[in-house]
Amino acid sequence: MAPLIQSVLHPAGVQAARLNQLWWVMFWVCTVVFISVLTALAMAIARGRRSASNASDATLTGSVGAAVGISVAALLVLLTASEITGRDLDALKAQNALRIQITGNQWWWDVQYLNPDPSLTVVTANEIHVPVGRPVGIVAKSNDVIHSLWIPALHGKRDLLPGRQSEIWLQADRAGVYRGQCAEYCGAQHAKMALTVVADLPDDFERWLSHMRGPAPPPATESQMRGRDVIERGPCAMCHSIAGTLAGGRTAPDLTHLASRSAIGAGSIPNTRGNLAGWIADPQHIKPGNKMPATGLASEELQALLDYLETLK
């Protein structure tokens, strides 16, 4: 797996690239200002030490005025740069865009790929795939408190506000895996509320999306069957959904394609069998305060459950 990229300075999409540009404009202008002012200060100190001669107040006023004037000019440059970037960012909205609805929850992301045809809707959680080179319009909502969606490699933040709905437009220009994270403090596990963004080539993306539309595969082995039983008859189904089974809970992430995701616990730990076992056995140890309780499954049940969950590609 590619290393996780979550940096403003490593843009992978047009929006982030524009912001990166703006950053460097700001950085250099500010650096010049910084050095100039400090140089002036150093000169002032040096000069003041050398001679006590006073320049006339008029000259001084002129100099200070000029300095302020130059500052204002620098400011105008930055303002213009900012304004241009702002307009550019707004320009991405497109008709043929992919529409994704992301709903914030304490502390995970509910993801829906919208489609005018409701039966083509895809529900998943904590990991999104986007096609390279195609604009994506994300509808941002929240089910509880304010969260903020931030995928630095692709764009800046957008708050997920309860009772309101906002939008953010982004586009990935390079295939890769990018990490996003909740940026608005949202309670106990704000730290462990991450989102994996996979930018796929368009064909890969379509393949992925159509795969995601399918329900979970039926269990093949006895153990997997037992595992599904644990889900349907045990505590899992009270909160989680797995399409194709009786599990229809919506208070926790959808697990239909859990095994295809790279992390569990909203980016808390990599999705391996061992981690998954540890997570199910004691989620409070890994992510204290999260809403999943320890379920107290017997080890035989846990193994069967893992066998089944591993099939949820």
């Binding site: 200002v33 933040k157 940026a183």
Partner: peptide
């Protein structure tokens, strides 16, 4: 004198943060 140094940095980063687009990246980091 140190104030000039540190406050200039703070002030200039403040200018960056005041820009809406750039703030979208820098906010809450």
């Amino acid at each position: 004198l140190a104030w000039f140094f540190v406050f200039l940095i703070g002030g200039l980063t403040g200018v960056m943060v005041a820009s809406v687009p750039l703030d979208l990246q820098l906010h809450d980091t």
